[in-house]
Amino acid sequence: MENRTVNNIKLGAFVLGGLLFLVVLLYMIGANRSLFGATYLLKARFENVQGLVAGNNVRFSGIQAGTVKNITILNDTVIEISMLIDKKMLMIIRNNALVSIGTDGLVGNKVVNIVPSKVSAPLAKEAEILQAKRAVSPDEMLQTLYTTNNDIAVIAANLKTTVQRINSSSALWALLSDPSIPKDLKISVAHIRDATGKAGNIVDNLDLMVEDVKVGKGLLGKLMRDESLAKNLEAAVVKINRVVEQADSLAGEFSGLVTDIRLDATKGKGTLHTLLRDSLMAASLTNSLENIQQGTDGFNQNMEAIKHSFLLRGYYKKLKKQQQKNEKKQE
């Protein structure tokens, strides 16, 4: 009897062990399919679902978030997928998140990927339709890969030619094997370093100058910053303009005068034409000037004689003394 009880306990443990494994198995599958726990519905619409079926996983940023509940054909170009999303995601998924259909690995099952947008937006509500992002199909990827392969083949061929040319270039290898080049390079680098330092100083100075100009120091700063100077300059420029205009008109008048004189001198009958062009008049004028000179000399002699005459000698002495007084005062 006791043996039978022990056997029954063993049997119970055996059966419970099997059932426990079954329950765990079913629970884990159910949990993966979002059958247990609270969920909410989100939707997305695609042109092509690429073999997606109900029960496929939905991931949010790579984390398991739910499963595809069903797939409905709305019309010939729009297919709507409904997704059961874990309620924990209600406070995470926003209504501007992008939905795309991908593959779990290279050869795995189809999965729906929900990717958050960088722009903030309200949280997605129950049964809200999220924006679908068109996924790149394997055919398109292969097509791109084909083009890329062709390009790589061309590049590889060019690279091969270049390497062959480099390998066969004696000048290049001579240059590379020249021991003096590293030394020269070092010197050049040192020079470049010095030049860079100096350029840095120049830039610093320029910076200071710019700072001075900004605060209105120096002539340039005043020019840039002083409003009164700018006004004066503007007034001066206006005046200069006016003077230039007057000078221009004066030059015009002078030019007209010169033209008149030229005409009068060449073709006219006036005094100037007579003075410049008439030779008789010139001779007569010369004689007259000589006569005037002679008259003036005679007049000077007469005046000197008058100075020494007793009638006017006192007057001239007095005039001389007055002149000497004035010179002393000035000294």
């Binding site: 079954l22 198995l25 079913l26 599958i29 399919r33 029960g55």
Partner: peptide
């Protein structure tokens, strides 16, 4: 076990059971 549970479905377990 996570990989196993992720790969199997009810349609794998129940018919076999």
């Amino acid at each position: 076990w996570t990989q196993v549970f992720n790969s199997i479905t009810f349609s794998d377990v129940l018919p076999a059971f």
